[in-house]
């Protein structure tokens, strides 16, 4: 296994740009249903590497808009069904590309508000699966579009709080086990809703910082392996709780740098694994969050 001291920025840019031409790999096709999110991760990674200008902006905007349905929601790809996961990515992407003026905002807002249920929870689409991930993914685009008034924010908040557990963490529905990804969505939702003071930040902060393992990486639940994407869920949650210094940032950074692919570029979940756009983006996010003035900012 190779060790790296720095972020391999040029290789990562190459890795991201090559993604759309990778059609002879089955991995390309099995994530076809979440292409819009994939594009969001890729474009955001380029933003973090100050390389947005290397992307074809107009082509991206047209592609995203072609995934919107008459209902206002976005599918994960052209002709795929609308779902809040991809509606969130689409709005985030258009905001990054500075193209919100191309979006029929009222239609999106109508779609999102149609997903909220009586108890304040959100379903993901017309079929009715409920999850706090969907609360977060509904609130983010509404916050971006300045339209939080379109849903019942008080109920949204109390639903998220009803998913809190004995360890201070949050699960996908009331009673479900805590999980770092789920904690990110719930803490994020509460941050948008102005409800962070309702969390016991010491109890949750302790659980979160205990995700760090001796090798420096972070896991998503007790007694699990480290994974780069969990680093982001944990680190960003700690940041929202003002407790980012509760983990060892230098050790984490070393771990992430060792997850880089020094041949093809990109960052993997663990050292030696295959890199992908999801972990590349979240690895760069952690790097930026923990070390705001480091190597990507040259």
């Amino acid at each position: 296994m190779s060790h790296h001291e720095t972020l391999l920025v040029d290789l990562h840019k190459k890795h991201i740009r090559a993604l759309e031409n990778n059609t002879d790999s089955f991995e390309y096709w099995v994530i076809e249903h979440l292409r819009v999110s994939g594009v969001y991760w890729g474009v955001s990674a380029m933003v973090l590497m100050n390389a947005l200008q290397e992307m074809d902006r107009e082509k991206l905007i047209e592609y995203v808009l072609s995934c919107q349905h008459p209902s206002g929601g976005f599918g994960g790809n052209v002709n795929h069904d609308p779902h809040i996961l991809y509606t969130c990515s689409a709005v985030q992407l258009l905001a990054i590309l500075d193209a919100l003026d191309r979006l029929d905002v009222d239609k999106v807002v109508t779609f999102i508000s149609s997903l909220q249920l009586e108890d304040g929870s959100f379903k993901g689409d017309q079929w009715g699966e409920i999850d706090t991930r969907f609360s977060y993914c509904s609130l983010v685009p509404l916050a971006i579009l300045n339209r939080l008034d379109a849903v019942d924010t008080k109920k949204a908040k109390s639903y998220v709080l009803s998913c809190q557990n004995f360890d201070g963490g949050f699960g996908c529905v009331p009673g479900a086990e805590s999980h770092a990804g789920q904690i990110f969505t719930c803490v994020g939702a509460l941050a948008i809703l102005g409800g962070l003071d309702e969390i016991d930040a010491d109890v949750l902060g302790f659980w979160l910082c205990e995700r760090q393992l001796p090798e420096g990486g972070l896991n998503g639940r007790p007694e699990k392996l480290a994974d780069v994407c969990y680093s982001w869920w944990v680190v960003s949650s700690l940041a929202m709780l003002n407790r980012i210094d509760w983990i060892d940032g230098d050790k984490l950074k070393k771990y992430i740098l060792n997850c880089q692919d020094d041949e093809a570029g990109g960052i993997a979940d663990r050292p030696g694994d295959v890199a992908d756009v999801f972990h590349t983006f979240f690895g760069l996010c952690v790097n930026q969050q923990v070390f705001p003035s480091s190597d990507t900012q040259d």
């Binding site: 979940d269 295959v274 972990h279």
Partner: peptide
């Protein structure tokens, strides 16, 4: 993608 080892 999770736990897929890198290839030559």
């Amino acid at each position: 993608m999770h736990s897929v080892r890198r290839r030559t």
